[in-house]
């Protein structure tokens, strides 16, 4: 019974997703066997460093992986009960921008420089809701004011280069939520912005989420952003999910050595610099080459507690406590 209820509340369910890139140097296993769910109206944080596969996972959901060389080689992506991977490109287009929207890291380059922001926001309405140019413009003005852009009647006719970075990200958000999507994928939406603007954008997103009841998949390498907005967190490393739990649980009881390393690397207010003692902690070593993955645990080469078994056998993602999964031989 409990299980059935969970299924009803699940908006997106990714099962065993693998996305590979076929390059002359070999197959890059960018995403390997990823599983996670996003519940209706919830915000899932996807945490990890550059190249860990979080953006590729997002682009796989949108089916915007450049192909070739990219290819979703296995798995399923259930969205509102339907497997997106079985959709035709036409069906997928009707989902993109309407049911699932995405905003990107670089608001500077993610808007087309030669069209007005009104044109670019209005496009979504014209494509998905069949509005004419005038109606689309009215809706665009409405959306600009919803995302907190002052004098939207004037801004609607401006070009991206006339707006600041924060404003452009607001425009991106306006564009993404225009058709009231069920899921908003935000790929490092605040990374390119000043800290004060970051907070404004996160507040805006949280507010809109509450108002519209949409789910958010927040991709970031910033623990602060995750803490601010997410309910649940997925930690990714080298294309795999290594830990998955509620946000409180992760901050209080991180189980995977990588998650611990990430949490430890946050400088704490009041930490004193002592000569000879490193003031900023890091996770030593490097992410393994995704073409020649080591056998055993992918984090083993950087793990402070590595054991023989870690180098030989691949750990599975297992539930250690209710709602807390971890991929580590030493956990639990």
């Amino acid at each position: 019974m409990m299980n059935q209820k969970t299924t009803e509340q699940t908006l997106l369910s990714i099962k065993n997703l693998s996305t590979y890139f076929h390059t002359p140097e070999g197959v890059i296993r960018a995403v390997e066997g990823v599983n996670f769910d996003i519940l209706k109206g919830a915000c899932l944080g996807v945490l990890g460093e550059s190249g860990c596969g979080k953006s590729v996972t997002a682009l796989s959901i949108m089916q915007l992986i450049p192909s070739p060389p990219g290819e979703i080689s296995s798995g399923s992506i259930q969205f509102a009960g339907k497997d997106l991977l079985r959709f035709s490109s036409r069906q997928m287009r009707s989902i993109r921008g309407k049911e699932i929207s995405m905003i990107f890291q670089e608001p500077m380059t993610s808007l087309n420089p030669v069209y007005t922001v009104g044109n670019q926001i209005g496009e979504t309405y014209r494509i998905h809701e069949g509005l004419d140019a005038r109606q689309a413009k009215e809706k665009s003005i409405e959306m600009l004011s919803l995302v907190g852009i002052p004098s939207p009647q004037k801004r609607v006719d401006e070009y991206p280069h006339q707006l600041s970075g924060g404003m452009r990200q607001r425009v991106m958000i306006a564009m993404a939520i225009g058709c009231q999507p069920k899921l908003l994928i935000a790929d490092e939406p605040t990374t390119a912005l000043d800290v004060t603007i970051q907070a404004q954008i996160l507040d805006l997103m949280a507010g809109l989420q509450e108002e519209m009841g949409m789910s958010i998949m927040m991709i970031t390498h910033d623990l602060g952003v995750i803490a601010e907005i997410s309910d649940k967190v997925v930690v990714m490393y080298a294309g795999q999910v290594v830990e998955q739990s509620s946000i409180d649980e992760l901050f209080k009881h991180p189980l995977h050595p990588y998650s611990r390393g990430l949490l430890n690397s946050i400088p704490k207010l009041g930490d004193k610099f002592v000569r000879g003692k490193q003031p900023l902690r890091e996770i030593s070593g490097q992410v393994p080459d995704l073409i020649n993955l080591p056998s055993g645990c992918l984090f083993a080469s950087r793990c402070p507690k590595v054991e023989k078994k870690c180098l030989e056998n691949v750990p599975q993602l297992i539930e250690i406590a209710p709602g807390h999964d971890v991929r580590c031989w030493l956990a639990g």
Binding site: L64, R93, R96, G97, F104, T109, P113, H128
Partner: peptide, 13 residues
Amino acid sequence: KDYIRTARAKGLP
């Protein structure tokens, strides 16, 4: 360019 990805993400044909 990123804005081409944005255009595709909007569901444009």
